[in-house]
Amino acid sequence: MYTTDLSGKDRKKPAPSAAEDPALLAAFEARVANDEFIEPKDWMPEAYRRTLVRQISQHAHSEIVGMLPEGNWITRAPSLRRKAILLAKVQDEGGHGLYLYSAAETLGASREEMIEALHSGKAKYSTIFNYPTLTWADIGAIGWLVDGAAIMNQVPLQRTSYGPYARAMVRVCKEESFHQRQGYELTMALCAGSKEQKRMAQDALNRWWWPSLMMFGPPDDKSPNTEQSIRWRIKRETNDELRQRFVDVTVPQAEAIGLAVPDPALKWNEDCGHYDFGKIDWEEFYAVVRGEGQVAKERMQARVTAWEDGAWVRNAATTYSVKRAAAKVAAE
């Protein structure tokens, strides 16, 4: 679900390798500038390949880790309808992780390597999933805010320059169209309900609002890779542009159901036609990126446990297929 660049402030800009043929590089840059798609076997600069593997796998990890906070409530969903919706949605996130890992695999990264990088802490995933889901209203807030922010980020990526990534994003965006709506509808139901339910909804908005704004990544002046990524059409809009759009569309949605956005500085700015909003606590963001989010340990533990507990299953299926193939050869 998330494509924020989490590589850190101090990372060096990818530089073209000295060994790369300038003519090939120029032809590549021209194709990208012309909005052509780059396909797996096409020549590409090593830095483009590396940046893509990092971004796509980070995006995939976010989908997979992102199953956990919502998965936490599947067994407690309060109606059969909500249970089915939530299960289908979390399952979709798994599917999206799968599409994205596949896209990264076309660049020569194996799924196993990528998962290994996630589990060792080398690879990052979206900061948002290191926040806990404490009440049922959090399921609404995630769908409404987190998926809402995700859509803003993902829609432009359907036109990203790398073909397999763009195609994966087309499928993801199509499938995610219900995710935000179900979250808002769930929140609406709470706001139309009892005092306790409404309190739950407001509390969830209070906790998820700022982390949702952080999902778009550091401000543009602190985002060293944005320029290069935009030139390569790996990214199509800047973090701040997307963040502003999110605030502009979300504030009226909150007001419509009687919820207060937890930002005293929030104000409609007639002159520029946008909302002004308060200062984001970037210290918190960088702390979560460093792995200091409240439930970062729980999330990683859950992923590592699932993977390690599944090792004997993956192994058994491989052994079985080898045995059967051998038996088939022997029979022929």
Partner: peptide, 22 residues
């Protein structure tokens, strides 16, 4: 079956189990 969601041996198997549960 829904208890498995997010915890299966591979992503593909996770999707299969969720389909059964649904």
């Amino acid at each position: 079956l829904s208890e498995w969601c997010g915890h299966a041996p591979t992503i593909e198997v996770d999707l299969s189990l969720a389909n059964l549960a649904l």
